Structure formats: structure tokens, C-alpha cells
Simulated assay, not measured.
Amino acid sequence: MKTKIILDTDPGIDDAMAILFAEANPNVDLVALTTVFGNADIETSTRNALYLKQRFGMNCDVAKGVSKPLLRDPVGASTAVHGENGFGDIALDAPTIAADPRPAHQYIIDTVKAAPKEITLVAVGPLTNLAMAITQAPEIGDLVKEVVIMGGAFGTHDHTGNVTPFAEANVHDDPHAADIVFTADWPVTVIGLDVTHETFFSTDYIDTLRDTCGEVGEFMWDISRFYLDFYKSRMDVDGCFVHDPSAIAYVIDPSLFTLRKGPIRVVCDGPAEGLTIQKHKPTKHKTDEWAEKRPQQVAIAVNDQAVLDVYLDSMTQYGNRES
């Protein structure tokens, strides 16, 4: 049975790789893309989502989300990583289709209520849309199937942060929203840097996507040029970590990941702003800001080769179907 997902996203080069993965895999039913600021501003993110929908003939809805964090000052788009247009500055035709008229958080509320226990929310950008949805309609916590988050870093394998020494980008962009989402009364699984930094798309692997996956492979190769240049100049590696597609891999096959359970809190200000902390030991303390919060799941290990295999298989089948 297919898993129905709403993919909350800030496209974004690795977002595009995740969106196309969700569209390609036969076990996923991509119901909608809800957009958020992050890798690009909200207008660019929404334009990019509509572009993907139109170019690749996707049936999903697109709903435009928020343009700024709940409380903190915006940190600005990640143009150094994703380019000015979010897709590595390749030439893009303007989409001629429109987004759903509802704001993203309302689209999420309406869709979850219309299909109780059927919708998995997958968020691969800042968590502002999800925080607004659960705050305005707490009842959806009992109606959603699962919430899967690409974000955070919990120190496993020494992975602690990528935009500060102790913060991952999606959480750092809106830590207050992340704390709301992680502590809400709904089932959350976090696919953070602890596992996304353990899986790697090499340049050879991305060349294989280009050579075997038809138009969609060529598109991913094209947009990845800018992304790989960033990785090479910043980290001196030939390839990129598998961030957003790892969240889709979890939806497809949770057995690829080892999970740890416990409540999560987010540091919302100061030098450790965006730090994610999971209490995974059953210790008792006089003061404990975790004790009354719902235990959530954090991925701490991954079968990285299996993730690479399912991604390539999905995209190759999808590319061949197009041709």
C-alpha cells in the first residue's frame, strides 16, 4: 500500500532530489508540496515547486507557505549552497500553473482532516508551516499518520551541526517552530545529520543518475553542478551528503534506519541556538524540561548502501518510464 505524503519543502537542490524521489518511488503517493522559506525565499521556493510539477507532469498539489520564522529574525536564503534561483542557477522556464489558493498550513490541516490516519507529513525545510498547523488545529495530532523531519543533529558519529557548530540549518532557520513540532502530541521521526552525513552521493553516482535516469537524471545532474562546487570548496569532497532524500528513504523503508526514542527539545536563543537535544535515558531529575514531553524517534544509524540502491532503482525506473 502506498504511503500518502505531504512534502513540506524549500526547493533547493537536494529538495528537488527528494521531491523527484517521492514522485518516482511506487510505494509513495505524493499528495502535495507545501513550500516554505529556507534554501530560497518563499516566492522562489514556490516557483521551483511549480516548475517541477509542470516539467515532470506531477499530479500533486502545490500550496505556498510562510515567508519568515515565527519569532527569530530571518537568516536569509542559502544562495551560496543552492544559487540565486535555488536550482544551481540553471536556466528555468517560468511555470504557467498556479498554487492552491490556501496557505500551506491550512492545506495541511484540511488534508489531514479529510484523510484521518492516512497522511504522513514529511518536512525537509524549516518547520514553520507544521508548527502553525499543529498550533492552530491541535486535533490533527491524532489524525496524522506520522511526521518525518529532515533536520537536527544529535551528536551521533560526531555530527553536531552544519550552519553553526551545534545547529542544523532547517532547525536553525526557525528553532521556535522546531521546538513546537518536536514537542507536539503527534508521532515524529527525525532524520538528522546523524544519518544524512553517513550517506554520500559521489560525483560518479550522480553521473550514473544522468546516464541511466533519462530527463530526470539529466536535470538532477545539471542542478547539482553548483551544489557539488560548494561541497568541493567548503569540504574538499567529491560529491554531497544525502540530506532531504534520506527522509523519503525512511518513508519507503523504515528498516533502513536505526532509531532511538526519547523527548526532544530545541535551544531557541543564545550561542547554541538551534541545538537539538534528545533525552534518551530514563533518568529522574528535579528539574526536567523533557520529562512531560512525548517521546519521539531519532535516527542514529543508517544502511547507507541500501539508501543509495533504492534511490538509483527508483529514479532509473522513473526515467525509463518517461522515455
Score class of each variant (00 low, 15 high):
43 E>G: 10
293 K>E: 01
9 T>S: 13
220 M>C: 13
286 K>N: 04
301 A>H: 08
25 N>D: 14
61 D>L: 15
180 I>L: 09
91 A>V: 13
251 V>S: 00
322 E>T: 06
296 Q>S: 03
31 V>P: 01
240 C>Q: 09
234 R>S: 09
317 Q>S: 08
9 T>V: 15
201 F>N: 02
239 G>D: 08
224 S>Q: 12
33 L>I: 15
176 H>W: 14
191 I>A: 02
66 V>E: 13
214 G>V: 15
285 H>C: 07
32 A>I: 06
114 A>G: 12
232 K>H: 10
35 T>R: 04
244 D>Q: 14
172 H>W: 15
19 I>Y: 05
286 K>S: 07
211 D>S: 11
95 P>H: 07
228 L>R: 12
313 D>C: 00
137 A>V: 15
215 E>F: 07
110 D>C: 10
231 Y>D: 04
297 Q>Y: 07
275 L>P: 03
109 I>Q: 13
260 R>A: 04
80 A>K: 12
309 D>F: 09
238 D>C: 03
43 E>W: 13
188 V>H: 00
44 T>L: 07
80 A>N: 11
173 D>R: 14
220 M>F: 09
42 I>Y: 07
262 G>C: 03
72 R>G: 00
164 T>A: 02
168 E>N: 02
163 V>G: 00
106 Q>P: 01
191 I>L: 02
83 G>H: 10
230 F>K: 05
129 N>T: 15
288 D>T: 09
80 A>M: 09
156 T>C: 00
180 I>S: 03
47 R>V: 05
270 G>V: 10
201 F>R: 04
89 D>C: 12
270 G>C: 10
151 G>L: 06
196 T>Q: 01
148 V>S: 06
4 K>S: 14
195 V>E: 02
161 G>M: 00
89 D>Q: 09
291 A>I: 03
117 K>Q: 15
81 V>H: 02
277 I>H: 05
87 F>T: 10
124 V>W: 00
59 N>M: 14
134 I>W: 13
240 C>L: 04
150 M>A: 08
236 D>R: 11
279 K>T: 01
320 N>M: 07
200 F>D: 02
118 E>Y: 09
115 A>I: 03
202 S>D: 08
245 P>R: 01
215 E>T: 15
299 A>D: 02
23 E>I: 05
285 H>T: 03
133 A>Q: 15
300 I>M: 05
4 K>I: 13
230 F>I: 09
53 K>M: 12
35 T>D: 10
24 A>H: 04
7 L>Y: 08
179 D>W: 06
236 D>I: 05
140 I>P: 08
211 D>A: 07
294 R>A: 05
238 D>L: 14
212 T>F: 05
210 R>H: 10
13 I>D: 00
104 A>E: 07
47 R>H: 12
131 A>W: 10
210 R>V: 02
171 V>D: 06
11 P>K: 00
279 K>D: 02
31 V>R: 14
155 G>P: 01
253 D>H: 06
113 K>C: 11
291 A>K: 11
310 V>R: 12
199 T>P: 04
135 T>R: 14
123 A>R: 00
61 D>P: 04
109 I>A: 13
